[in-house]
């Protein structure tokens, strides 16, 4: 009897934790949709490209951060190596990006 309740307790604690996590993820999702709408609006309104391109790029980066850290749990423990390699990939991406917009044309 006592044993049973204790497992239930752990379970309900676990459930509560999962629920809490889920709540955060829904907030994240709402923010992502919101950012997407801002980006599309900004482009649709025809604001000058000097302003709008940095804006939509920043919004994209923030969104991707949400995906990685919340949806894919990179903020959790045990993700040190995944994070290391994802950031490695992002670093190479940065190098490739800079290269292909600056020194591809002779």
């Amino acid at each position: 009897m006592t044993e049973n309740t204790s497992t239930n307790k752990i379970n309900s604690f676990q459930k509560e934790k999962n629920k809490d996590e889920m709540r955060k993820q829904i907030i994240t999702f709402a923010l992502m949709i919101f950012f997407t709408m801002i980006a599309f609006f900004a482009v649709g309104m025809g604001i000058s490209s000097m302003f709008v391109i940095p804006l939509i790029l920043i919004l994209a980066i923030v969104q991707v951060g949400f995906q990685f850290y919340y949806f894919m749990h990179m903020k959790d423990k045990g993700h040190e190596f995944p994070a290391l390699l994802i950031f490695g990939g992002i670093w190479v991406t940065f190098l490739v990006g800079v290269t292909f917009v600056t020194i591809i044309w002779w």
């Binding site: 190479v92 490739v96 290269t99 292909f100 591809i104 044309w105 002779w106």
Partner: peptide, 12 residues
């Protein structure tokens, strides 16, 4: 097209 793209990708 641009053939320098190959060179960059190949050497990256």
């Amino acid at each position: 097209g641009n053939s320098v793209i190959w060179q960059h990708l190949f050497w990256i």
